[in-house]
Simulated scan of single mutants.
Amino acid sequence: MLEAVRVALDPTPRQERLLESHAGAARFAYNAGLAHVKDMLERGDKPEWSYYGLRRWWNQAKNTLAVDETTGEPWWPENSKEAYNSGLESLADALKNFSKSRKGRRKGRRMGFPRFKSKDKAVPGFAYTTGSFGLIDCDPHALRLPRIGRVHCMEDVSRRVDGAKVLRMSVSKRGGRWQASLTVERADLSIPSPPKGGSVGIDLGVKELAALSDGTVIHNPHALKSNLRRLKKAQRNLSRKRKGSNRRRKARAQVARLYARVANLRVYVQWF
Rank of each mutant, 00 (worst) to 15 (best):
W271C: 04
A127V: 07
R55N: 05
Y30D: 07
D156S: 06
V171N: 10
T64K: 10
P77T: 13
T129Q: 14
K100P: 01
L189W: 14
I136W: 00
I218D: 02
G201W: 11
D10A: 14
S193D: 13
A23D: 03
P140D: 02
L231E: 03
V217L: 13
S181A: 11
K233C: 06
V5K: 15
S86F: 05
K81I: 07
A210T: 11
L54F: 13
G72N: 04
V255W: 03
L182V: 01
G131N: 07
P114G: 07
S21A: 15
K62Y: 05
D139L: 03
P146G: 03
R174N: 01
A251I: 11
A92W: 03
R106N: 00
V267Y: 08
K46D: 08
S86N: 02
R105F: 05
L238S: 01
L204A: 15
S132W: 00
L238I: 06
I202Q: 04
K207A: 12
L265N: 02
V123A: 09
A92N: 12
P47S: 12
M40W: 03
I148C: 04
R168A: 01
L204F: 12
L65Y: 03
S172G: 12
P192V: 14
F28Q: 06
K46H: 02
N63C: 02
V217Y: 04
D10L: 15
R56Q: 02
D120E: 14
K243E: 08
R177K: 10
R102S: 10
L265R: 06
F116W: 07
N264I: 09
L41D: 00
S239K: 15
K232N: 08
N63E: 14
G197I: 15
L189K: 15
R261F: 10
L258P: 02
E82W: 00
R229Q: 11
S213N: 01
G163Y: 04
L258H: 08
V161Q: 02
N237F: 01
V157H: 00
A8P: 00
L41M: 07
F116Y: 09
E16I: 07
S21Y: 02
R174H: 00
K173V: 05
V7G: 01
R160P: 00
E78H: 10
P195L: 15
W76F: 11
S158C: 12
H219W: 09
R247I: 09
W76H: 06
R110Q: 08
V161I: 13
A32E: 09
S190F: 09
T216N: 04
